[in-house]
């Protein structure tokens, strides 16, 4: 029951957020200079041709009507037609979403598997050279630019060692092995910075919980140091880290423009760049809206998780 109330509150907050965002996205696109009808029709088109195109895509309607038309169909899953290649935007997005999801999951796995254990290690060896070294690694990985790390990895592992492909996406169902190999380097690029962030926050949350009275109690019970750290301290330290991880994951779902460019991965990032370049309103609007909804879904999931691992909320 308490959970339903909690969840309901979060959901009630999410709806207006999406609506406001949809208005902003819609307006922003219209306020940008450039005429999509002109972009579509090409140089040779006459005035009448332009009118026809405008009419066909509803571009001649008053702006608020355009918005409601767009929102109405968006609600039933129709995000319009791509001005550029006449495909349904919804299908287009679904295809790219699969790719972006794979990349986001792979990056997140790397970030969690590296970041959290190193954060725990640094905190449990607080003040030693290991702590200092780990913090230095964390800081470096946070500040290293994606394109630079990407190029470095390509040089090392594709050009020199030839372990992983430098670019190109292969769908999973065509060749699972090659598909997975293609995701390795881009996931490292995206996962590194997040690993650094998770490491830093895990470390400080762990330092806090290791100093807590309940950890002293755990030690007073005669538990092994391993159990004290991994069960009693980590469990509480994870509460803030989970929220942070969810936010990072949400960002990944919006698409990684640079990394997708470097490794020629046709995900949300690439779609966004193309959409903006060709003034493909429908695609850009749909993309931003879907990313926002995904982000909100991820934070809702994080809230649920937060609720599960934090008994104090459960009453």
């Amino acid at each position: 029951m308490r959970f339903l109330i909690f969840f309901g509150q979060r959901l009630a907050l999410a709806v207006p957020t999406v609506l406001i965002l949809s208005v902003l996205v819609f307006l922003l696109q219209r306020l940008l200079p450039g005429d999509p009808a002109l972009a579509m029709g090409g140089d040779e088109i006459d005035l009448q041709g332009l009118e026809e195109i405008r009419h066909k895509y509803g571009l001649d309607l008053p702006i608020h009507l355009q918005y409601f038309r767009w929102l109405g169909s968006a609600l039933v899953g129709d995000l319009g037609i791509s001005l550029r290649n006449s495909m349904g935007v919804t299908e287009l997005l679904l295809g790219k979403l699969v790719i972006t999801l794979q990349l986001a999951f792979a990056s997140m796995i790397i970030a969690v598997v590296v970041g959290i254990p190193l954060g725990v290690l640094a905190a449990s060896r607080h003040g030693t050279w290991l702590d200092t070294a780990t913090s230095a690694v964390s800081l470096t990985s946070i500040s290293i630019p994606h394109f630079w790390l990407g190029i470095l990895l390509v040089l090392a592992f594709s050009v020199n060692l030839q372990w992983f492909p430098s670019s190109g996406y292969v769908p999973f169902w065509e060749d699972p092995r090659r598909s997975a190999m293609g995701f390795v380097l881009p996931s490292i690029v995206l996962g590194t910075g997040i690993a650094g962030v998770l490491m830093r926050h895990t470390r400080s949350a762990m330092l806090q919980s290791l100093g807590a009275d309940y950890v002293r109690t755990a030690r007073a019970k005669g538990l092994s140091e391993r159990r004290v750290v991994l069960r009693h301290a980590l469990r509480n330290a994870l509460v803030p880290v989970v929220t942070l991880g969810a936010i990072e994951f949400g960002h990944l779902l919006a698409g990684a423009v640079l990394t997708e460019q470097i490794f020629s991965i046709p995900g949300f990032g690439k779609l966004l760049v193309d959409g903006v370049l060709y003034r493909d309103y429908a695609v850009v609007q749909g993309l931003v809206l879907v990313s926002a909804v995904l982000f909100i879904l991820v934070s809702l999931t994080a809230d649920v998780l937060y609720f599960v691992i934090n008994p104090r909320l459960r009453g």
């Binding site: 009275d213 002293r216 469990r235 509480n236 934090n310 008994p311 104090r312």
Partner: peptide, 17 residues
């Protein structure tokens, strides 16, 4: 040898029953 502490409010782990 067991010990109980000065701070009952914070000596139990909030995450476990």
């Amino acid at each position: 040898i067991s010990m109980i502490f000065q701070e009952p409010m914070s000596s139990l782990n909030p995450a476990f029953t």
